[in-house]
């Protein structure tokens, strides 16, 4: 009886929250990078995390697909708890797409091979099907004509769009963006943000670490502010920008918006 209610509970939770982080802590040696993080992300929710550099925002989202290990607390992604079990980690990584600041495309493979690698080797998709999917997403990020080129032959903005398409080819449930536009030349920021906006319109669950406040305002459901490893406050964009509660948030916003 008890067990039944528990499983029922979990199912309900799965339906609503795709990511659950409870009382999570992380240390680098003695340095306490993440303190008491609790965060629920609902399906199709879009969250933007901002904060000064070194505040732990990148570390937080890197904990979600276990690129970083947390030492205390609990992270549950799509009903699977992140532990040291390699099988679970690989399962979660296949469900969670990630886009990096420096793109991290595989320079020895063509764009098309960059996109088909994951589906073929992790999902065991037949090559022809994987290539069709890849071309579909390359069309979506408007870069299909570059499929046969190598990453080194593309501009930064194009590379980042390829990186987004590469993640999408795995058909992820959640997309994590780690400062996706910070390494780009200014004129290329828009083309990447446009792709992310169209992704948002398709209902993708997204967690974005970014300082693009315009993007946060128009796309996010919730904006979180982090400082010294803590989530200081989180609110709807409107409330967050127009009526910040904490002094640290106010200070940060005044610095970034001027």
């Amino acid at each position: 009886m008890n067990e039944n209610t528990q499983t029922a509970n979990i199912e309900v939770e799965q339906n609503s929250d795709i990511i659950q982080i409870t009382d999570m802590h992380k240390w680098y040696g003695d340095f306490h990078v993440l303190k008491n993080i609790t965060l629920q992300v609902k399906k199709q929710e879009r969250i933007v995390i901002c904060g000064p550099s070194g505040s732990g925002k990148s570390t937080l989202i890197r904990c979600i697909n276990r690129l970083e290990e947390h030492q205390k607390g609990k992270i549950v992604v799509d009903g699977i708890e992140l532990t040291n079990d390699l099988k679970n980690i690989e399962k979660i990584r296949a469900e969670v797409g990630m886009v990096f600041q420096h793109f991290n495309l595989f320079p020895h493979l063509t764009i098309l091979d960059n996109l088909t690698l994951g589906p073929i080797w992790v999902r065991k998709t037949p090559r022809a099907e994987a290539e069709d999917t890849a071309m579909y997403y390359l069309e979506k990020v408007r870069i299909a004509e570059q499929a046969k080129k190598y990453p080194g032959q593309l501009s930064g903005g194009q590379q980042q769009r390829v990186a987004i398409a590469r993640s999408l080819c795995m058909k992820p449930n959640v997309m994590l963006f780690d400062e996706p536009t910070s390494a780009l030349d200014p004129e290329m920021v828009k083309e990447v943000l446009d792709v992310m906006i169209s992704l948002a319109n398709d209902g993708m669950t997204m967690i974005v670490v970014s300082h693009e406040m315009g993007f946060a305002r128009s796309v996010a459901h919730r904006v979180l502010f982090m400082d010294y490893g803590e989530i200081v406050e989180g609110n709807t964009p409107q409330a967050f920008f127009d009526n910040p509660q904490h002094d640290r948030t106010k200070l940060f916003l005044s610095q970034i918006l001027d």
Binding site: L67, E90, R93, A94, F100, N104, F106, G118, S167
Partner: peptide, 25 residues
């Protein structure tokens, strides 16, 4: 390091990462 991370983030295991991503480069 980004190459390892990108491979990890796709869900490739150690041998796939080495064989397909790291060793060729």
């Amino acid at each position: 390091k980004g190459q390892y991370e990108a491979a990890d983030a796709l869900g490739l295991n150690y041998f796939q990462t080495m064989r397909l991503i790291i060793l060729p480069q």
